[in-house]
Amino acid sequence: MRKILVIAGIVWMEMWRRKTLHVLGILLAATLLLLFSINISGLGRIPGYVKETGLLLTWLLGWIMGINIAVRQLPQEEKRGTVYAMLARPVGRGQLLLGKWLGAWLAATGAVLCFYALNVLIVGGFGGRFGAVALLQAVSLHGMLLAMITALAVALSVRLTQEAAAALSYIATAAMFAFVPRIPEFVAGAEGWRQTAMLILYTAMPHFELFDMRPRVVHLHGPIRWSTWALILLYGAMITTILLTAAWLAFRNRHFSRTAKD
């Protein structure tokens, strides 16, 4: 575990030194303050509107950060050649993979936590409020969602270039958000084997929509039941484990000698 944490530490240091979080935090704060100052048709005075926009931005920034950080880890190691020095130490490939994923996940989750805190501060500063328990549940589910997204990005980056893995990660995750919740509509209109295929697809695809508590948080509808919350977290952990196992199977026999000239 110590080696995995050391590798994750490298990811955090890279993110910190490259000032990724600083730039995105400033962007989020600037956007939220702008929303208050523009006050088009009086909308800026409604805390719900600002909360909704702030949380949407937090989700978008978390999504972009999660994929961007995760997808570059292994390809950059190979491109720089640092993968050789890393694996020349008593570090297993599984440990390297887990360290990279953990680093990317916790970096993205840490950034998202900062964004939530910024939201609370800005909305609170203008007289709005969040339900504490619902917000806690929303943040934890968002963190688990980022675990799945970063695991998918890491898994794709094992065999693809950084650019291809990033593009595919964005397409796949966007499709999971937009398409999977709508599959039941198609199931109702289909018959025979098509209906069966869609049902299988609906069951097999990760359900990202389960992790989205934004409407409840914005409209102060209160928390969900803790048993439901725990089941969703368990489901997220299961999907993450499946994705990381697939990544490890692809990574464990990966040949790094292709750059060897002699």
Binding site: I10, E14, R18, G81, A85, A88, P90
Partner: peptide, 21 residues
């Protein structure tokens, strides 16, 4: 076995490192 590398030091042909550290 990963443990075999506990007693090895390796300098690659084109060494590079984490430049942000």
């Amino acid at each position: 076995r990963a443990i075999a590398r506990q007693r090895i030091g390796y300098l690659p042909e084109h060494p590079d490192t984490y430049r942000f550290l």
